[in-house]
Design a protein around this nucleic acid. Sequence first.
DNA 1: TGACTATATAACCGTATAGTTATATTGTCA
DNA 2: TGACAATATAACTATACGGTTATATAGTCA
Lengths: 130, 130
Amino acid sequence: MNLFFQVMSNQSKRAGMGAEALEMIAARFRVLSEASRLKLIIALESGEKNVSALVAGTGLTQANVSRQLQALTDAGILGRRKEGLNVIYHIADKSIFDMCDHVCGSLQRRIEDQALLLSPGRKKTGAGKV
Amino acid sequence: MNLFFQVMSNQSKRAGMGAEALEMIAARFRVLSEASRLKLIIALESGEKNVSALVAGTGLTQANVSRQLQALTDAGILGRRKEGLNVIYHIADKSIFDMCDHVCGSLQRRIEDQALLLSPGRKKTGAGKV
DNA sequence: TGACTATATAACCGTATAGTTATATTGTCA
DNA sequence: TGACAATATAACTATACGGTTATATAGTCA
């Protein structure tokens, strides 16, 4: 299966996507649409941590951390494990980081393009992937 | 630069990410967190369209379409071009589709895992990429 | 058992925003 | 010019949800 076919295949898949499927995808993005939750995800990237460590590491309040961890776990992005009094969270869906990097790249390109518009002296480098 | 280094590099980049950067990324995800906007993006995947066509194609009201197109354009996801009375929109950042496919794959895996939990008779296939 | 710790939950407030209706703007054509 | 069409915007309502404070739950240890 070549790339062209793959692309076309996904395209028609998306075009025929039902309302429920769209809503699920939107919900997934919604979970990632709050800086506090991203903070928690990033804090967990270096390894699993309990709630107290996350509170200390992020500066968020305990109640807030608990709530957001709940949302992330419900979404399947995090997993949890009890150990005595502690609850230890870990990244369950590592593809999250690919997404973040994707967005970062996209933003980078956008910012570069804007800078280009403001100071048209410099030439565009071939950095834009798309 | 090998993959391990790339990953570690991105990881430390993310760990040191400023609050503003996090907020920008969150905002990016927020734009994609509404089914109506995803609908518009998908409608534009097969080619540029004017507003009327998007209204007809999505079933959303004209005012709503106009508002959501505005948000998507502000975010750099769509681009616009005037042609007489019409305004024609197009996908400006095609990497959006990679993201959608990423989310789809992630959801798929999640659903499969849940199905597995509910009917433990079947074996897990090696489909999970992460 | 009771004191203590880690985490979760409830109740609440404030704000952001999706969608609607009505209207304004902008361009075309007679 | 005026009538019309395509799009954008303003004003409004309703709702969702992030963050806070206070309290509940669950586990540990004396």
